[in-house]
Write a protein that binds this DNA or RNA. Structure first.
Lengths: 196, 196, 196, 196
DNA sequence: TATGAATGAGTCTTCATTCAT
DNA sequence: GATGAATGAAGACTCATTCAT
């Protein structure tokens, strides 16, 4: 019965395939290099399908960037869970960051969104949202200022990984996060004098 | 072929104009959005001039990115001089960084080089060189690890500025740099805002 | 992008039209003088159609040369049939060659392929194939050496026709072919105009 | 004194260098592929020199083709001398032809002129002149018809060499020329019923 | 609805030719 | 006179987008 319902394919599934292909390509060749043809080829769908589901290439691009942002969001959710379970210490956080660095796709997805944000106000909100997510994760324990500082540092770590051949190692990250975050505040947040 | 009046005849100047126009455009619309036509229009030269001086658009792009990197280099030289004069303290450094953040062009030039580095190995070296410059500035006073950490943090600050509407403020930067750098390791201690 | 009326929708036919137009132009203005624009104009199709069907101009050129080679092949098949019916004598062959010379297009098609072969290894095979076709037609009757010699001579006749205003006449061709081929070596002798 | 006369260089010599470079290039890459820039680079002269000595590229092309034709002419003069000395027999002629085939440049020069002749009436005369030269060499001994036939065959041999990997061998050429030319006429020409 | 043919705008690039120096 | 900078026309090619089927 469920098979009979969908004639050929599930439109939603196809849409997802296209977005996934576009996201892959953005990570690989950059947001400005994607074309309908490349996306169609990568997704294994006919050219027409890419224009069927998205009015313009910009729309497709946006959907793909949103997809990448969702991936990062999901990853952050994993971080949240891990911190909740293992404790929000610089050591645990450093471990999670270092793990993230090992997943090239994760790093690139994040960087792609931020890069696209520079010249696209729409994406800017996406990028802002992501870093705020991390801030909000750390803020209850370390306060806004330190949480912001740590997030900005981790941002720098991501870029460093993207540009350099040798990724930064966990001990370094832990040490620096330790300095930035200091000791966890006893139990609950203190509003501090952070800026942004 | 045409009866048009040939323009000025100063190859070096013209080349510089073209590179400057390309650099401007990279900052404004992104490295992937530049075209011969846009550069020619911005520089106020005929289309053919852009191809006369650069065999390929890639060559022109590279020259423009190098120009931007040189700008950043010059700025870093200014930082070096200021640190030498006013002391390599987190406070002085924070002031210089905050000043840099106020110069949108400076931030954008730096970010443009880093962004272009992601998909262009040639530019990657340029980007690496820039961050190493800053590391080398701080290393004599704070050691490699702290110098690197501070540089990575400043990198994050730059991105944050690029993405957010409100730039981070000087006190925040000073506080965090203080935590990252700690007391100068050398014999010329400065007043540092370290805490924790 | 435009409100133009799309034309007919018969890809195969359109492809053939484009190839035919390109072949015509190669014969008229030479293989190196064809451009997308000229082909499109000649075929009566928009510029984009020529690039839609052929990834590169080289591909289009190759298809057109192959088309010309096919024409020559078809002509050779006619020669084969005629020789089979009327006997493989120098006289019959000379008549067929002389007929071929009267068809300017046939001569030009042949010469165009050979000319293009000089600087294009891919086409070289095409050209070789054509002359081998004729050799194989004559070889069973006259042996490889004489068949080759006659083919080479006929090649020279084609070029002579291409360069001179007055084409060589049938009697001359017959006389020379008679000398080159001599008496048929097979069991089915034909009246031959051999002399000397 | 002779050195003082010419300021920088001998204009005539420079002109010859340019023509020689163009001729070389025509042989290598085809008559349609030459450009001012390529010729200047090959000749080792500044770009402006190529336009200084020739009003248009067509003029330069024509001069270069004429140069190639002159080379062939010189070669034919060598053939004339050799025939005069060693006798105008098919064997001697075949040897000279076979020697010519070994000189790739000689074959290509000849073919370049003939090829260019197809679409350029001006060059056509040049090409006609060349084959007539050879006819006139053989005519006194073998008569116009046989001389023409042999020339046409040799023309075919040249093309065959250009297209095939393995050049035709001397014995084959001698055998066929022997059949085409027959025995040398006793002493002086007989006007025969040849066509062209 | 799904597909891919159709179209032309726009891109990079090459070059003949002109002409300032 | 010699040089190479200057210019734009023209060429190959790519692709977003439209729309017939």
């Amino acid at each position: 019965m469920s098979d009979a319902h969908r004639r050929r394919r599930d439109p939603e599934a196809r849409r997802r395939e296209i977005v996934a292909a576009a996201a892959e390509l953005i990570v690989e060749i950059g947001v400005d290099a994607i074309t309908h043809r490349k996306v169609a080829a990568r997704a294994g769908v006919p050219l027409g399908a890419t224009t069927q589901y998205f009015a313009t290439l910009d729309d497709l691009r946006e959907a793909a960037l949103r997809e990448l942002a969702d991936e990062v969001d999901a990853r952050l959710e994993g971080v949240r869970a891990a911190l909740a379970e293992r404790g929000t210490s610089p050591a645990v956080l450093a471990t999670l960051v270092a793990e993230g660095l090992d997943d090239a796709r994760a790093v690139q997805a994040d960087r792609a969104v931020v890069t696209a944000a520079v010249h696209d106000p729409g994406v800017r909100e996406l990028a802002r949202h992501l870093s705020e997510q991390l801030i909000h994760l750390l803020e209850p324990v370390y306060g806004l200022e330190r949480a912001t500082a740590a997030t900005i540092f981790i941002d720098g770590v991501m870029w460093s990984t993207q540009i350099r051949d040798t990724p930064l190692d966990r001990p370094f990250i832990e040490t620096v996060l330790g300095r930035i975050l200091g000791e966890p505040a006893s139990d609950h947040p203190h509003t501090s004098a952070a800026s942004a």
